[in-house]
Structures are given as structure tokens and as C-alpha cells.
């Protein structure tokens, strides 16, 4: 119903065509191959709307009819994290990837690849179960007594809320993991508990360690993070914070957990266990 117009950005050419080079794969263990599609660009187009066009009538540049491209998507407003993929070599959400910015001229090329750190399900769709599994590794939750009516939670200053809110906007998209040189593809779930946990989970551990009730599990979280695949596997390349679409201070969280594990180790040494 909406016909309102937004300004055309960066003098992107109206009525142009853009080439999409897409790395396709029919399923696990199948070979990957590039396919190219030439797409007319409407106003306000983003990668999703172009993929929708391809899905409706998938014909490659060389005239071959193919199956529709498979991809993962949800909210389309960069808040659910589903549509993350590698676009022109860098990981990001495809919904917020505007064609006017990425391909303003006739004949420009946009490449789409699935994330490389997770097993491909099909085409651009990857299985990110490990990402969620890693949240469980650090018990990223507040251990409340139950959903009963037990009064309000703890008070909090606006400054502390501001810190926690940012950490809490992590949408588990996996950008930080895709860009991390220490986080590698691990299809075998048996190894997930010893492979690098990733910045997102470390940051969540920080969030919950800082919550007055969440703190109850702080020792367990730190124990988990001190083991193999924990905080020490971070290589401080700091790509995570650069690619985080929500601008979460991930490297700050890593340093905080670094400090907490240092103190925890010292305390443990003297307290014994």
C-alpha cells in the first residue's frame, strides 16, 4: 500500500541492472558452484528484495533456468540476525544491505556467499546451532526461582542499564564469529565444547556475570571460559567488534572476562577447591 519514496542514495542510477554472483550448493557434501543473475533494480532495493526476485524466476545470466536460491531470513529490519551472509567478501545482514550503496552503477556486481564458519544447509543457508549451543556453555541466563509473582527485580542506575542494554542487543547473527580468525568451522558437535566459544558468548557471560541474580552462576561461567576453547583462545585480532552490526563492545567484554578469569584463578588458587 505504501508508495512513499525515499531519496535515491549516492546518485544510484535509476532503472539499472546489477549482477548477482551467488555461491550455490545443493546440500551438505555436494559441490559448490557460482551462478550469476542479472537483476533489474527497483527503488529501495536491498539484497533480500533481489533474492526474492531471483526466487520468483530463477534464470541465470547465460539463460539457464535453475532452482530458486535458498536463504535464511526473518525480520528484514536487522534485528533477528537470520539473513546474515557474506556479501562482497564481508559478513553482514543482507536485509540492511542496500543496492544503491553496494551497486550504484549499471552492471555492478554483488557476490553472495554463505557464512564459512558454519555448515551449509543449502545455498546461502547455514546451520548456526553451534552459536546457540555456545550460549548454553556459559549458562547465559539469569537463574530465577521461577515465573511466580515474587516482586520486582533489582534496581539499576541508568548508566548501568545503558551498558547492559547494548550487550543485550546481541541477536546471535554470527558476524563476530565469521570474521574471527580463531573461530573455525566445526561440523562435529562432539567438538563444540572444546572449540573456541566466540565473542558473542563471552560478551553474554559478561552481561550475566554483571546481573545481581545472574552473578550466582559467575563461577561456573568463568570455569567454562577458562577451559579449552574459552577466553584464552581469543587471539585479539578484534575483527569481531569491527563487524558487529549492533556495535556491541565485544573486545571490551573480552577484556572484562580476561580480568574476571584472572581474579577467579587467583581466588581459586588461594581458596582451593
Amino acid at each position: 500500500m505504501s508508495t512513499a519514496t525515499a531519496p535515491v542514495r549516492r546518485n544510484a542510477k535509476v532503472g539499472r541492472h546489477v549482477f548477482f554472483r551467488i555461491l550455490r550448493c545443493e546440500g551438505p557434501g555436494k559441490p559448490s558452484q557460482w551462478q550469476e543473475f542479472r537483476i533489474p533494480i527497483p527503488e529501495n532495493a536491498n539484497v533480500i528484495s533481489c533474492l526474492q526476485q531471483i526466487a520468483a524466476n530463477p534464470v541465470t545470466t547465460d539463460g539457464q533456468t535453475v532452482t530458486p536460491v535458498v536463504w535464511d531470513a526473518g525480520c528484514l529490519e536487522e534485528v533477528c540476525g537470520a539473513c546474515t551472509m557474506v556479501i562482497n567478501g564481508k559478513v553482514r545482514q543482507s536485509c540492511s544491505c542496500l543496492i544503491d550503496e553496494y551497486a550504484p552503477n549499471e552492471g555492478d556486481v554483488i557476490t553472495l556467499e554463505p557464512m564459512s564458519k558454519f555448515p551449509v544447509v543449502r545455498d546461502l543457508w547455514v546451520d548456526r546451532s553451534r552459536l546457540f549451543h555456545n550460549l548454553a556453555r556459559v549458562k547465559a541466563w539469569v537463574p530465577i526461582d521461577g515465573t511466580y509473582d515474587l516482586g520486582a527485580g533489582p534496581k539499576e542506575t541508568p548508566a548501568s542499564q545503558a551498558t547492559h542494554y547494548v550487550l543485550s542487543t546481541c541477536m546471535s547473527c554470527g558476524c563476530c564469529l565469521e570474521a574471527c580468525p580463531q573461530f573455525n568451522l566445526e561440523p562435529d558437535s562432539a567438538n563444540w565444547d572444546t572449540a573456541f566459544i566466540g565473542a558473542h558468548a563471552i560478551s553474554q557471560a559478561r552481561l550475566f556475570n554483571d546481573h545481581p541474580t545472574g552473578r550466582e552462576l559467575k563461577d561456573e561461567r568463568l570455569d567454562a571460559l577458562m577451559g579449552e576453547g574459552g577466553i584464552n583462545d581469543c587471539g585479539n585480532a578484534q575483527n569481531c567488534v569491527k563487524v558487529c552490526p549492533k556495535h556491541i563492545p565485544l573486545t571490551e567484554s573480552i577484556a572484562v572476562i580476561g580480568r574476571q578469569t584472572t581474579m577467579h584463578a587467583i581466588a581459586q588458587f588461594f581458596r582451593g577447591r
Binding site: I144, D149, L150, A152, E156, T157, P158, S160, S168, T213
Partner: peptide
């Protein structure tokens, strides 16, 4: 709201620390 608060939802706060 109280329950969500206990679960750790970072509700915006007033200067005194109550839910805004």
C-alpha cells in the same frame, strides 16, 4: 513486568533506578 525485570530485561531506568 516484575517477572521480566527479574529475568534481567534491561528496562530503561529513571535517575533513581526505577523502571522508566
Amino acid at each position: 513486568i516484575d517477572l521480566l525485570d527479574r529475568m534481567g530485561v534491561p528496562f530503561n531506568r529513571t535517575g533513581e533506578g526505577y523502571r522508566d
